[in-house]
Amino acid sequence: MNGDESLVGNAFTGALKLLLSLDPALFRVIALSLQVSLSAVAIATALALPLGAAVALFRFPGRGLVVVALNALMGLPPVVVGLAVYLLLSRAGPLGAAGLLFTPSAMVIAQCVLVLPIVAALTRQTVSDLWEEYHEQLQSLGSSRARAIPTLLWDGRFRLITAVLAGFGRASAEVGAVLIVGGNIDGFTRVMTTSIALETSKGNLGIAMALGIVLLALIGVINGLAYGIGELARRHYG
């Protein structure tokens, strides 16, 4: 028992030293993690907001299947996404000529695939609820469904920001997909989650714990922001 406590204590002490000394290698990993996740969330959000709103407002054959698919894809297994993107970007794949495999760009694509259905599904639900509430008023003003999309997205901005934060939380904590398509290359595609897995397996618990502390802090901030925005939304919508 004392040995276990000593191991944890040494790992925690080492983690604090690395964080307080602003270890360059550690913060390169953190910076790349944020760069990849923020890029993926930005791209996914730009695609998911109009997609979710369009599915909410327009009626077309197979719409029910699209709604079911979006909801189901929210729980996509990361390793399956990683495999699909790997096959897409491999030399024998349709996008192999682009040479994106084992690059940060491949990691962005994988995380984007994971985040997009989350934001799209939550956007669809938000816009659908707002349309039921305001469609008579909007139609009386001569607004078509297509023209109502920007208005409804803006009115639901607090809920949608929470959806985007949920997507960012999924991306920042993901390990399977980025490990497959990024290769966990030191100094190039190594991010926090893959570093934690690698350093733990190597017995470098100080580095793993330092990155774990940063990742937990990041997730805590995301949850805090989501809670705060949720409170603002409740006040806004009464």
Rank of each mutant, 00 (worst) to 15 (best):
A42D: 06
A42H: 06
I43T: 09
A44H: 05
A44S: 14
A44K: 11
T45N: 01
T45I: 10
T45M: 04
T45V: 08
A46D: 02
A46N: 02
L47Q: 02
L47C: 14
L47T: 00
A48N: 09
A48R: 07
A48V: 01
A48Y: 13
L49C: 12
L49A: 01
P50H: 08
P50M: 03
L51W: 09
L51Y: 13
L51E: 11
G52R: 05
G52N: 10
G52H: 10
A53M: 07
A54I: 14
A54V: 12
V55D: 09
V55H: 00
A56H: 01
A56G: 05
A56R: 08
L57F: 14
L57Q: 14
F58N: 07
F58G: 08
R59V: 13
P61I: 05
G62P: 05
R63S: 07
G64A: 14
G64V: 08
G64Y: 11
L65R: 10
V66E: 11
V66C: 14
V66S: 13
V66I: 15
V66Y: 13
V66N: 10
V66A: 15
V67A: 09
V68P: 06
V68L: 12
A69I: 05
A69Y: 11
L70C: 12
L70I: 04
L70G: 09
L70A: 11
N71S: 08
N71Y: 04
N71F: 11
N71L: 08
A72H: 07
A72M: 14
A72R: 06
A72P: 01
A72S: 13
L73C: 06
L73Q: 02
L73V: 02
M74V: 09
M74H: 00
M74E: 03
M74T: 11
G75C: 02
G75N: 03
G75W: 10
L76N: 04
L76T: 06
L76V: 12
L76G: 01
P77W: 13
P77H: 01
P78R: 00
P78S: 10
P78L: 00
V79R: 06
V79N: 11
V80L: 14
V80P: 02
V80F: 13
V80D: 00
V80T: 07
V80Y: 09
V80H: 06
V81E: 04
V81L: 11
